[in-house]
């Protein structure tokens, strides 16, 4: 995955809560066996409404999504992350995220940033007032900066390091192949096998 250090861009305000992954990418899009082409499916049903915020030309080229709480709840489909990234988003800001979505994002290098509901509201108002408002998301400093204000966000050291280095989890785990083999040799004999 691509490393993430600092990103500055414009933002789209998504004034909805409980943005489940079925909305981010509807199930018909999950039939694909490739990893590309999901940008067309992003918010497919909502985008049919001409007044939906992503259809507003003022927000063309935005790379940060600022959403209401409980973004990415529901289905585990990583396609939701792929769709957001392929559409051009690098960061999603919300007060709360679905756990699986948040995990999937950090595996792919899409940064989920948790801010307080008040900070989210301030950011949404700022970009609604001026869609050209630039927001900087600084992973090194764990800060979001916009309109002269600064908000800190939390992310654990390990995930931050992995994102900043753009590291592949599998490669990291395979460094501990010996520990895995040792664990395997001590498992209870009755545990089921599929084959």
């Amino acid at each position: 995955m691509d490393a993430f250090t600092t990103h500055t861009g414009t933002a789209v305000p998504l004034r909805r809560s409980n943005v489940d992954t079925d909305q981010i990418i509807p199930a018909v899009w999950l039939k694909q066996v490739s990893r590309t082409g999901f940008e067309k499916g992003l918010f497919a049903a909502w985008r049919e409404d001409p007044s939906f915020v992503l259809n507003d030309p003022a927000y063309t080229g935005a790379s940060i999504l600022v959403s209401g709480p409980d973004f990415g709840t529901g289905s585990s489909r990583e396609h939701a992350v792929w769709a957001l990234q392929q559409y051009g988003f690098r960061v999603v800001v919300a007060a709360r995220f679905g756990d699986i979505f948040r995990n999937n994002s950090t595996k792919m290098g899409l940064l989920p940033v948790i801010l307080s509901p008040e900070a989210v509201e301030t950011l949404q108002k700022a970009v609604e007032a001026d869609p050209a408002t630039e927001i900087t998301v600084d992973l090194g400093a764990r800060e979001v900066r916009a309109t002269g204000e600064t908000w800190s966000f939390e992310i654990d050291d390990y995930t931050r390091w992995r994102l900043m280095e753009g590291l592949d989890d599998i490669g990291l785990t395979l460094r501990h192949a010996d520990a895995i083999a040792e664990y395997e040799s001590e498992r209870q004999p009755w545990l089921p096998k599929t084959a």
């Binding site: 585990s76 489909r77 990583e78 396609h79 992350v81 699986i100 995990n103 999937n104 595996k107 792919m108 989890d169 599998i170 785990t173 395979l174 192949a177 895995i180 395997e184």
Partner: peptide, 14 residues
């Protein structure tokens, strides 16, 4: 539940 990146991780490393 896990996403596809984690599915790959479990397949490769259990």
């Amino acid at each position: 539940g896990i996403g596809t990146s984690e599915v790959e991780h479990v397949l490769a490393t259990q």
